[in-house]
Simulated assay, not measured.
Amino acid sequence: MFVLKTDTGLILFDTGSYGSADRILKSIKAAGFEPETIKAICLTHWHGDHTGGLAGITAFLGANQSLDIFIGEADLPLLKDQSFHLLRFHPFLQLPVLHGPGRLPNSSNARFCPLNTAGCEILHQKYGITAIDTPGHTPGHMAYLHRETGSLFSGCALSLLTPHVAGLVPVFHDRAEQIRSGEYLAGMDFRYLLPAHMCLRRDEIPLERRRPVSGKKGVVSKLMGDHLFFKIL
Rank of each mutant, 00 (worst) to 15 (best):
F2Y: 15
V3Q: 09
L4A: 09
K5R: 14
T6S: 14
T6D: 10
D7A: 10
T8L: 07
L10Y: 08
I11D: 02
L12I: 15
L12Y: 07
F13T: 05
G16R: 08
Y18C: 13
A21M: 14
I24Y: 04
L25F: 09
K26C: 13
S27E: 14
I28A: 07
I28R: 03
E34T: 13
P35G: 05
E36C: 11
T37C: 09
A40S: 12
I41T: 12
L43N: 08
T44V: 15
H45F: 02
G48Y: 09
D49R: 14
H50W: 04
G53R: 01
L54S: 06
A55D: 14
A55I: 09
A55Y: 04
G56Q: 10
I57S: 03
T58D: 12
F60R: 09
A63R: 14
N64I: 06
Q65C: 13
S66T: 14
L67H: 04
E73H: 10
A74D: 12
A74C: 07
D75G: 05
L78K: 06
S83H: 14
F84S: 15
L87T: 10
R88P: 02
H90P: 05
L93R: 12
H99N: 11
G100T: 06
G102C: 14
R103F: 14
L104P: 03
P105Q: 11
N106V: 11
S107M: 10
A110N: 08
R111D: 08
N116T: 14
T117R: 15
C120W: 05
I122C: 05
I122P: 01
L123M: 06
K126L: 11
G128Y: 08
H146D: 11
R147H: 15
G155V: 03
C156E: 07
L158W: 00
S159Y: 06
T162P: 03
T162I: 09
H164G: 06
L168Q: 01
V171W: 00
V171R: 01
V171N: 00
D174A: 07
I179F: 00
I179L: 03
S181E: 03
G182P: 02
E183A: 09
E183V: 01
G187H: 10
D189M: 01
L194F: 11
L194V: 12
P195D: 07
I205V: 12
I205D: 00
P206D: 00
P206M: 03
R211I: 07
V213C: 10
G215M: 07
K216E: 08
V220Q: 11
S221I: 12
S221E: 15
S221N: 13
M224E: 09
D226C: 10
L228W: 03
F229N: 01
F230V: 00
I232W: 00
L233T: 07
